[in-house]
Simulated scan of single mutants.
Amino acid sequence: MNKPIRVILLIMGLGLLAAGAVFMKMGMFEEIKALPGVMIGVGAGLFGHSLGALIQAGTLKRHPEDARKLQIEQTDERNVAISREAKSRAFDVMGYVYAALMLALVMMGAELMVVLLLVAAYLITYGVMIYELNRLHKEM
């Protein structure tokens, strides 16, 4: 991502963060009480991510030898394989965690909509896995 886009995202994040804080302080959006909190969270995330990316880009620009080393580390086959293996194991564990959480919520008598949203997320996750599995099998 180039610098102007990072700066725009930084400003948008700061704006969302400030607007959410103002809305929360003024007590606006009574019908959607979570909106100011969501604005603060998304704004803080955008601001932090963009600021970190700008700082990293500036640092790597001043130290090209470190930029080259970082690029080599990120594209090294061994590191890529390790990263994919870690993601694979995390995905396997996530399936059990989702299932246990859904069961616990049902047993606690949680709202049906909450449980159904979690079930939808679970099914979407496995749907994406099946789609990607089929796509990769055809590709290879």
Rank of each mutant, 00 (worst) to 15 (best):
V7P: 00
G109I: 04
G58P: 04
A67K: 15
M39Y: 00
G45C: 12
L116Q: 14
E65L: 12
P4R: 15
L16A: 06
V115Y: 06
F23K: 13
L101R: 10
M26T: 03
A34M: 11
A81R: 14
I32W: 02
F91G: 09
R135A: 12
Y131T: 09
A121L: 14
V42K: 01
A18S: 04
Q74F: 04
A90H: 07
V128N: 02
A34Y: 10
V7W: 00
V80F: 06
G58F: 08
I55H: 07
E31V: 02
G45Y: 06
V22E: 02
R78G: 02
R84W: 04
I130N: 08
L46C: 12
G127M: 08
M94D: 02
A57V: 09
L118T: 05
G41N: 12
M113V: 11
Y131M: 05
A44M: 12
I40L: 14
M94Y: 02
A57E: 15
A90R: 14
R78P: 01
A121Q: 13
I130P: 00
F23V: 01
Q71K: 03
I40C: 06
I5Y: 08
L123N: 05
R89I: 10
L16M: 15
L70S: 10
A86N: 13
M113G: 04
F23T: 11
A67V: 13
V93S: 03
Q56F: 09
M108W: 04
G109E: 01
A18P: 00
L116D: 03
G95H: 08
G13V: 03
S83E: 12
K69T: 13
K25D: 07
V42Q: 01
E111T: 01
M107Y: 11
A90Q: 05
K33N: 08
L54V: 06
D92A: 10
M108H: 05
R84Q: 06
R135K: 15
A21R: 07
L60R: 04
G15A: 14
V38F: 13
A19G: 02
A81Y: 11
R6W: 11
K87E: 13
G95L: 02
V115C: 07
A19S: 04
T59C: 05
V22K: 01
Y96Q: 08
V128L: 14
H49W: 11
A121H: 06
V22A: 00
S88K: 06
E73Q: 10
S83F: 02
A81K: 15
